[in-house]
Simulated scan of single mutants.
Amino acid sequence: MAKLAKQSNAYQDRMERVCDYIRANLDDDLSVDRLCRIALFSKYHFHRQFSEYTGVNVFRFIQLTRLKRACYQLAYRQDLRIIDIAFEAKFENPESFARAFKKLFGQKPSQFRKQPQWQLWHQNYRLPAQRGKTDMQIEIVEFEQTKVAVLEHRGPVETLNDSIAVFIEWRRASGLSPKSTSNTYGLAYDDPETTAPENFRFDLCGSVEQDVPHNPQGVVTKTIPGGRCAVIHHVGPHEVMDDKIRFLYGTWLPESNEELRDFPCFFHYLNLFPDVPENELITDIYLPLKDA
């Protein structure tokens, strides 16, 4: 049994290596021959193996991954022209890009840019999430008290991207918490798997030096308190941080003899998608602890 489990993990690692390579090299020529060499699989069996593992064929996987990046570029990179996003997604022309986009997401790219329907996006986008890296090393650190500008998201997790767009709009308009120089945090009050969608709470935060004045986006000033925290480092998509969060709460905490402070788990996003590929996202997960 142990040997079979080891073989299974090795197989999964090879398939994930292919998926990682695709996500990190979306602008390159992702030929089957090249992907087979990455996976160390025979090209005569690769298509079936890949489809069995991901649920879609390799060409569809590549297209869907490029379209996901295009969605985030449309929503959060207003400086990019739609025609350039289409070509970057490897479509021959804007028309074919628009047809494929609307067929999958129910909106034209121009409509999505103006008013993205993220709940519909989550319903229609079906692609296995990349696994996060499995390193579970925990470090105890002293977090420094940090003043933050906060947009309070309240409602289904599927609409969180709408709140992100509002927060980005405030950052650009105010100049008080620019993404390039300010630290970006998220305060996770609730677990979306155990919380009714209408009750889900999440704060989008950017560090600031001064209190935030009244603004049309509803951004307010809060403080992330200083103190001891357990930190675990996550590399990969935000959607697959759950394993590390559950490890912190379910395994590490009971064995550590530590006690939690009255403050939620929070995240420090060291970079963001689509600025970097999803497999290169880096997030520190903080669990606030009482003084020793």
Score class of each variant (00 low, 15 high):
residue 49 Q to D: 07
residue 255 E to D: 09
residue 129 A to C: 09
residue 219 V to W: 02
residue 109 P to K: 06
residue 57 N to D: 14
residue 230 A to K: 04
residue 222 K to P: 01
residue 134 T to R: 10
residue 86 A to W: 08
residue 178 P to Y: 00
residue 273 F to H: 12
residue 229 C to K: 05
residue 137 Q to T: 15
residue 171 R to Q: 09
residue 118 W to I: 11
residue 191 D to N: 15
residue 79 D to M: 08
residue 288 P to S: 13
residue 61 F to S: 05
residue 262 D to P: 03
residue 203 D to R: 08
residue 200 F to W: 14
residue 240 V to K: 04
residue 63 Q to N: 14
residue 283 T to F: 02
residue 133 K to C: 02
residue 98 A to Q: 03
residue 39 A to N: 01
residue 279 N to S: 05
residue 250 G to R: 13
residue 99 R to Y: 12
residue 221 T to V: 03
residue 125 Y to P: 00
residue 195 T to N: 04
residue 275 D to L: 00
residue 145 Q to D: 07
residue 267 F to M: 02
residue 256 S to W: 11
residue 174 S to G: 04
residue 113 R to D: 04
residue 221 T to N: 02
residue 175 G to F: 00
residue 263 F to D: 02
residue 20 D to E: 08
residue 288 P to V: 12
residue 1 M to T: 14
residue 227 G to F: 04
residue 262 D to C: 06
residue 75 A to Q: 06
residue 171 R to N: 02
residue 243 D to Y: 01
residue 94 P to C: 09
residue 158 E to Q: 10
residue 270 L to E: 06
residue 290 K to G: 14
residue 39 A to V: 04
residue 184 T to Y: 03
residue 289 L to G: 08
residue 281 L to K: 01
residue 42 S to N: 14
residue 103 K to V: 11
residue 10 A to L: 14
residue 143 F to I: 10
residue 152 E to R: 13
residue 80 L to A: 12
residue 15 M to S: 08
residue 220 V to H: 08
residue 33 D to Q: 14
residue 265 C to V: 15
residue 113 R to N: 06
residue 203 D to L: 07
residue 22 I to G: 11
residue 50 F to T: 06
residue 290 K to N: 15
residue 132 G to E: 06
residue 154 R to E: 09
residue 95 E to M: 13
residue 119 Q to M: 11
residue 178 P to R: 00
residue 205 C to W: 03
residue 120 L to T: 13
residue 277 P to D: 09
residue 110 S to D: 14
residue 32 V to A: 07
residue 188 A to V: 12
residue 276 V to C: 09
residue 27 D to G: 15
residue 107 Q to E: 10
residue 45 H to C: 08
residue 273 F to L: 05
residue 46 F to G: 04
residue 39 A to M: 03
residue 165 A to E: 09
residue 263 F to T: 01
residue 28 D to S: 15
